[in-house]
């Protein structure tokens, strides 16, 4: 989740001049109907969606950087081809999502400009460094795993273009998680050094992965409104619990230990009890203090600036051809 609310004081006040239209809108959403771009919608719904979808899109794009870091150093041709395909998928996810957000009346260039200027947010997870090859497997397993958990219910989110983007994304996402787990599994079946590398990666990525689900429900003031509008379909804590419950057995199966001394099975609730991530760290990373946040922004800005001549040339070429056709 890349869709979790990262702003603390954004509760959009639902001011609406048209109570009747608002009531009709809410009834449609409550009946699980899809809202389409040209349908009437409350301003706050539009604003929340633009923020959520663009934030999700930025996360897909910035999310290519930690993995791109290892494409040239993948340990085999097989792993390299897989990683390339995955990173290419993430670029596609970013594009599907920018397009969905654009249907709400914000251009892609505006969204890109906001990201490059450091005004837009993206998932905190991508502000952590990928130090070893084991990080790449761990990201596929945990980060894409957490993303899937959040995105599957969003296939039924109330805004049509967003829901359709989610359907495409979910279809592609499961390979991401499986290739990651397979890579970690290979390390765990290798030398003691390789296994230690896998454990070290899990130790570093576990807590940031749990943070991906966003702050605890009681510190997430906008959840209720978003659930009512079907922009969000489960609470942060519910998804986090689900993630822990499915991931712990996956770690155990390959002999890895979840780095949480508070973790234990709770028969009564039929799920694990577990410790809380460091929420101060989370909010600091949200504010831009992530270990490699500056590097990420520098890389995105460099890519945009270095690509300027290509964009300009493409436009010039298209214009010249259009002129020729007109002549």
């Amino acid at each position: 989740m890349y869709t979790t609310e990262l702003s603390r004081n954004t509760a959009p006040s639902v001011v609406c001049d048209d109570a009747e239209r608002l009531a009709a809108f809410e009834a449609r959403v409550a009946a699980d109907e899809f809202i389409e771009p040209k349908d009437w919608m409350p301003d706050a719904y539009r604003k929340t969606l633009v923020r959520q979808i663009s934030q999700h899109a930025h996360s897909e794009i910035v999310g290519m950087l930690p993995e791109g870091n290892w494409i040239g150093r993948a340990p085999s041709l097989r792993r390299k081809a897989i990683l390339l395909a995955k990173v290419q998928d993430e670029a596609g996810h970013g594009l599907y999502l920018y397009c969905a957000a654009e249907t709400l009346g914000t251009s892609r260039d505006e969204m890109t400009a906001a990201l490059l200027a450091g005004k837009a947010k993206y998932s905190t997870i991508f502000n952590y460094p990928t130090l070893t090859w084991a990080d790449i497997g761990t990201i596929g397993w945990l980060v894409d795993g957490a993303a899937i958990m959040n995105q599957v219910p969003l296939q039924r989110t109330s805004y049509g273009p967003y829901a359709r983007a989610m359907v495409r994304i979910c279809k592609e996402e499961s390979f991401h998680q499986r290739q990651g787990y397979e890579a970690v599994m290979a390390l765990c079946a290798g030398t003691p050094e390789q296994k230690a590398m896998a454990q070290d990666a899990l130790n570093r990525w576990w807590w940031p992965s749990l943070m991906m689900f966003g702050p605890p429900d009681d510190a997430s003031p906008n959840t209720e409104q978003s659930m009512r509008w079907r922009i969000k379909r489960d609470t942060n804590d519910a998804l986090r619990q689900k993630f822990v419950d499915v991931t712990v057995p996956q770690a155990e199966a390959i002999g890895l230990t979840i780095p949480d001394p508070a973790l234990r099975w709770n028969e009564d609730k039929d799920g694990y009890d577990f410790g809380q991530p460091d929420w101060d760290e989370f909010w600091a990373v949200v504010k831009g203090d992530g270990p490699v946040a500056a590097d990420r922004m520098a890389a995105r800005n460099k890519a945009w600036d270095d690509g300027a001549w290509v964009r300009d040339a493409a436009i010039a070429h298209a214009e010249k051809r259009a002129l020729k056709r007109a002549a």
């Binding site: 290419q88 594009l95 599907y96 654009e102 892609r108 359709r164 495409r168 964009r311 298209a318 051809r321």
Partner: peptide, 24 residues
Amino acid sequence: HVGSLHAADAAMAVQAARDVYTRR
């Protein structure tokens, strides 16, 4: 209809559509 994309001209749009919407 599968979605949309930005491109400078039709030829680039086909190329990008191939990359974005038909990788599998």
